[in-house]
């Protein structure tokens, strides 16, 4: 028995929470970059590019994140690549998040009405100009609420990194519980911290969703 819960334990938990945030941001940035590339590939003019990127999305969406973590952390060393828990968790999350964000963003791009493409084409804009000046600005607005919503999933999913020995929030809770044997108390604290991290984002996502439905008239100063 390690005595009762004290400030050091709490600080340790907060440190774990910090790593959860780091891992989440890593996943969002890495997965965001990958996802953006995937989304563009999914709407590419080339059939081969569409097929390969589509295959990637299917493969990852059909694989548990846990298995991807095992593969990178235990599988890679078995074939000769050493990898740290942070790198393994970061890489796994990037691969995983990239597929999902790619799919969310592909949907957003494709939900911009076809005539918008044609209008841009009729004005002699190049494919890149059509994408960057006409389609993507509209797609971003469509994609923002589900993207923020998905970020909440990412934060919660980082807890899986504990299985590769990465000490984030869930794992730090386990460690403390191993010495204190107060599972109800400690896991309640863990749950509260996760909630505090996620709740503002859930709220933001819902607010953005409501606003997306209203269009953008209110951004204009009264004439």
């Amino acid at each position: 028995m390690g005595g009762s819960l004290n400030l050091n334990h709490l600080l340790f938990l907060l440190q774990g929470a910090g790593w959860t945030v780091v891992l989440s941001v890593l996943a969002l940035v890495g997965g965001g970059i990958l996802g953006f590339a995937v989304a563009l590939c999914r709407v590419s003019a080339s059939r081969a590019v569409r097929l390969v990127s589509g295959g990637y999305v299917q493969l990852i969406q059909g694989t548990p994140l846990l298995v991807i973590m095992f593969l990178t952390y235990f599988g890679l060393p078995a074939i000769g690549f050493r990898i740290s828990p942070l790198a393994a968790a970061g890489a796994s999350l990037t691969i995983y998040v990239g597929a999902y964000l790619g799919e969310i963003w592909r949907g957003a791009i494709q939900s911009v009405p076809r005539p918008q493409w044609e209008a841009a084409e009729g004005l002699a804009l190049s494919r890149t100009q059509r994408m960057t000046r006409v389609i993507l600005p509209q797609a971003v607005r469509i994609a923002t609420p589900p993207t923020v919503g998905f970020f909440v999933q990412i934060i919660k999913n980082t807890s899986l990194a504990s299985v590769v020995g990465f000490v984030e929030l869930a794992r730090s809770g386990q460690i403390i519980n191993n010495s204190l044997f107060e599972p109800f108390l400690i896991y309640s604290i863990i749950a509260v911290i996760y909630f505090v991290l996620c709740y503002p984002l859930s709220r933001l996502s819902r607010r953005l969703e409501r606003r997306a439905g209203q269009g953008r008239g209110q951004t204009l100063a009264p004439a």
Binding site: G122, S126, Q129
Partner: peptide, 28 residues
């Protein structure tokens, strides 16, 4: 050389009327 106008107007909703108009002349 050819301008086309469609049934569904298709102004770009994220741009003001002015921005809609100057987009192609400035970009193209």
């Amino acid at each position: 050389d050819v301008g086309i106008v469609f049934q569904s107007y298709n102004l770009f909703p994220h741009l003001t009327v002015e921005e809609n108009i100057i987009l192609a002349p400035t970009a193209v």
